[in-house]
Amino acid sequence: MLVSRETEERFAAFVELLARWRRATNLISESTFPHVWTRHIADSAQLLALSQGATRWLDMGSGAGFPGLIVAIQLADVAGAVVHCVDSDRRRCAFLREAARATRAPAVIHPVRIESLAPNDVGAVDCVTARAFAPLLKTLEFAKPWLETGAVGLFPRGRSAVKEPDREPAPPHYAIETIRSVIDAEAAILRVRKS
């Protein structure tokens, strides 16, 4: 994955903040921090290429900013770009606000549960994301207001993604495409569209 020098510097600033905040706010597990560049940054960054030019995003359950804040960092120099990061934990939201400020990422932080966020609170979006958030059907239920109005859903589902649509079929009005992760050959991303 090639990024500009400016984006690389923003990613580095994000990782530095994550290193300082992670213990106090339980952002990511200690065991994954040594692999933060591949397991979290690159894994999240690959979504931008799958979004077909999306500049307005909604990330459900943003946690430590994966993938929402990483996508926002990538869009920092794109006019009109915005990523709405939604998380109910106020400590994580404090981290997200500080990380967005430090990296000059176009992110708006919503410290609420996704089910209490009205579509009017964020407006139209091009892409909805969620990583390690909820089972597929629940994720689709929460994303429905935006998927129904034309947004594409990009849901990294890890190594279980390949079989997940078979185990938990989506409603018939959604088309689901399984895309192999470029970071982990055994993991996949589900791209969902209203059919």
Rank of each mutant, 00 (worst) to 15 (best):
A13G: 14
A64Q: 06
A100C: 10
C85S: 10
H84V: 12
H35I: 09
I28R: 09
L96F: 08
M60W: 02
R101M: 03
P34K: 15
H40A: 02
A105D: 03
M60Q: 07
R22S: 05
A99E: 02
A13E: 14
Q74A: 12
V86T: 11
T25K: 09
Q74I: 01
L50E: 02
R20W: 07
T55D: 10
V78Q: 13
C93L: 03
S31W: 07
L50A: 10
V83A: 14
E98Q: 08
L96C: 15
A100E: 03
P67H: 02
E98W: 00
L117V: 05
L18T: 14
L47A: 14
I114L: 10
H84Q: 06
A45G: 14
A24E: 10
A99H: 06
A105W: 01
R56M: 09
R97S: 04
L117E: 02
R20A: 03
Q46A: 03
A19Q: 08
G63R: 07
S116F: 01
A19C: 06
I73Q: 10
I73A: 12
S62W: 04
L17V: 07
A94M: 04
S31Y: 12
W21A: 07
R101C: 04
S62D: 01
L69P: 12
A100R: 09
T32I: 15
G80Y: 06
G63S: 09
